[in-house]
Design a protein around this nucleic acid. Structure first.
Length: 631
RNA sequence: GGGCUCGUAGCUCAGCAUGGACAGAGCGAACGCCUCCUAAGCGUUAGGUCGAGGGUUCGAAUCCCUCCGGGCCCGCCA
């Protein structure tokens, strides 16, 4: 919180100087300067004023500086004008250090968490992988992004509900059912293969190949789909069973990545619940949907989409289209329609929370409300942006009474040419290729985790030969998760990730394990010191450049959480964690802690190391990365 | 054809919302640093017409326009 206060104090000083000098109020920026010689904060107010005041920035800065007199006990030490026109400020390090470290050590478990949510309810949907295949790297980006967002929302005091939509009545499920029922494929995977992988890698790929040659088989999927939608036949029961088996395996992978959910929404329940017809009534009542008596959409119900062709939502045969199915679900999320579902327990999760699933009829196993969020965020890749925009538009026409529907899109994950080649896929001159479940062009999530695990295992073992198998595996697993999680979240959402197996195995530099390593180093210092950290140590003794820099980073955590929540940007949190870890590694290099002979300085440094650990751990936890004591 | 999006060092990316002080990291390359808290670390050097051109501005990687190049989306499929 202290960096925030420092900024506020500088703002106040500048604002009052502007006022007392007789200038009108105006907006100005207070930020960190590009070079440390310019101090800790800089203000561009003189530039902003120069036009109106018809004076050179340097002159204004000179005028204002006379009126900027920091209080004795404030975080601001001094202000000075720079010939370029900036007003630069220096922080009172003794005060900043003392206050920051005391704050961290007093409430380590909640340090940095910032109440920007005020308890408002956010609903986040992510994962939502068709239950006919295993997750691949592309899905990993979705899961990791969604889970990080959930954690950020929690850290900023939002009430959170995480949904995972299960499309159990779609064509993709029908496809593997055709494979099992009409193409003679076995329902038990060979050699103990994971069931989701078996269905995706073999059944789904093969049946799509068979469709090419066998048109009758291709016709079967429509019949199967119809039976699944009606939900009563033997085929439907068989499909439901297959879906549940795949889903359970998918969840294992998600849980392995340390994601968790509150509710599984089954599409079939939305279909049967008549949620659609209720939403459709609303659309008709509000004149959002229109019946076409003639033209190319004759006999269909359509909605107008801004700047686009009309969208058909009900076909001339009376069935609903894909986008139409999303509308009632979205309306349910926002609480615009009565909740038709009951809720049953599905399974307890790794974080000891209960995962529920929708059911129809009967008593609910919980009183909890899963819908009606103040804000609903749906995480799907940006290929769906167009449809999502139409859904938002329709919802706002229905009247969301202040509630917000947001699509958080991200670019796809593609495979590098090297990785594609290693899988026997020739992509010619191209640098990367899009994945395709149908064609079997993808890298499985479990494979990525296993490969990373194996690599990390060797690394940990060389460094810690005395560790037991169990310890080695536990640590290797955490490193694997951190590597992939950090990798998926560190870059901008609208940038494609070209996944390369070999590159992903890097555990050095700007990676998750680098962060964990900095943490492990800090914990070893504390352990070896054999002392208790004293939150009342003499922090003003921490005057080394690298000590001050580290304290400043620690002091910014709440600003980072606030920003990450506001801009829905796990990336900014990842960037921060990296610079925090770098600040620590610099300190580690320059300032020996355990060798220090002055007891007062030693205690102050230990407290700093401890505070660093707290800040980094809280940042890592929010990214879904485990802070390791040893690695 | 229309819409969205990306283009910054050899490679992967920050910075762009709210324009400002010599454009920053990581990887890769070369060379250094473990009698000292784990070298998964730290440092030095080399490497940039911020895709191109125009405009706005005292000032543009950042805002606007045009163009070029890559990706995606535009179905009574899902």
């Amino acid at each position: 919180m202290t960096f925030r206060v420092l900024i506020e104090q500088v703002r106040a000083l500048v604002a009052s100087a502007v006022e007392s000098a007789g200038y009108p109020k105006l907006d100005f920026d207070v930020s960190e300067p590009p070079r440390k010689e310019f101090g800790d904060l800089t203000c561009n107010v003189a530039f902003q004023m120069s036009k109106q005041a018809k004076k050179a920035p340097q002159k204004i800065a000179g005028e204002l500086i006379e009126r900027i007199k920091p209080q004795q006990d404030s975080f601001v030490l001094s202000a000075e004008p720079h010939p370029a026109g900036y007003i630069n400020f220096r922080a009172n390090y003794a005060k900043l250090s003392t206050t920051t470290l005391a704050q961290v050590l007093k409430n380590p478990d909640s340090y940095g968490y910032y109440d920007s949510g005020k308890g408002s309810h956010v609903i986040i949907e992510h994962t939502s992988v068709n239950p006919n295949k295993a997750l691949h790297v592309g899905h990993m980006r979705n899961v990791i992004l969604g889970d990080a967002l959930y954690r950020i929302m929690k850290a900023t005091n939002h009430r959170t509900t995480v949904l995972n939509y299960v499309d159990d009545s779609g064509l993709q499920v029908a496809d593997i059912v055709v494979g099992f029922k009409f193409a003679g494929m076995k329902t038990e995977p060979p050699g103990g293969k994971k069931f989701d992988q078996y269905c995706g890698d073999e059944v789904y790929v093969k049946i799509n190949e068979m469709y090419e040659k066998d048109k009758e088989l291709a016709e079967m999927r429509k019949l199967v789909l119809k039976e699944i939608e009606e939900g009563k036949s033997e085929i439907a029961r068989f499909a439901a069973n297959i879906t549940m088996r795949v889903l359970q395996e998918q969840l294992k992978t998600c849980w392995r990545m340390k994601a968790r959910y509150d509710l599984l929404n089954f599409e079939s329940h939305i279909v049967v619940s008549k949620l659609w017809s209720r939403a459709f009534e609303l659309l008709k009542k509000n004149n959002i949907a229109r019946f076409e008596a003639e033209g190319k959409n004759k006999g269909c119900w359509v909605i107008e989409a801004q700047g686009e062709e009309d969208k058909v939502i009900v076909r001339s045969d009376g069935t609903a289209t894909y986008i139409a199915k999303d509308i009632p679900y979205a309306a349910w999320k926002l609480g615009l329609v009565d909740d038709p579902f009951s809720y049953a327990k599905y399974q307890n999760q790794w974080d000891d929370s209960m995962l529920y699933r929708t059911t129809l009829g009967g008593e609910s196993a919980t009183d909890r409300k899963f819908n009606g969020g103040d804000r609903v965020t749906t995480i799907i890749d940006s290929r769906q942006a167009r449809l999502q925009r139409i859904i938002s538009q329709v919802l706002s026409q229905m009247g969301t009474s202040g509630r917000e529907y947001l699509h958080l899109g991200y670019e796809a994950v593609t495979l590098s040419s090297a990785t594609a080649k290693s899988m026997g896929i020739d992509i010619g001159e191209r640098e990367s290729t899009h994945m395709s479940g149908r064609k079997g062009i993808y890298v499985n999530a479990d494979y990525v985790l296993d490969t990373l695990h194996a690599k990390a295992y060797e690394e940990v073992k060389t460094r810690n030969p005395e560790f037991s198998e169990q310890q080695l595996n536990a640590i290797a697993e955490e490193i694997a998760i951190s590597a992939i999680r950090y990798n998926m979240v560190r870059q901008d959402l609208d940038k494609m990730i070209t996944f390369d197996v070999k590159e992903s195995l890097s555990l050095e530099g700007d990676t998750g394990p680098y962060l964990q390593y900095a943490y492990a180093r800090s914990q070893r210092i504390l352990e070896k010191s054999g002392r208790q950290v004293d939150s009342k140590a003499r922090f003003e003794l921490l005057t080394h450049e690298s000590e001050v820099a580290l304290i400043k980073e620690i002091a910014k955590l709440d600003l980072v959480f606030e920003d990450a929540a506001r801009s829905l940007s796990p990336k900014s949190l990842a960037r921060y964690a990296y610079s925090l870890a770098t600040a620590f590694n610099l300190f580690y290099e320059k300032v020996p802690v355990l060798k220090e002979e002055n007891a007062g300085v030693l205690m102050a440094r230990l407290a700093l190391v401890s505070a660093f650990g707290v800040a980094l751990k809280n940042a890592l936890t929010t990214l879904g990365i485990t802070a390791l004591e040893r690695m």
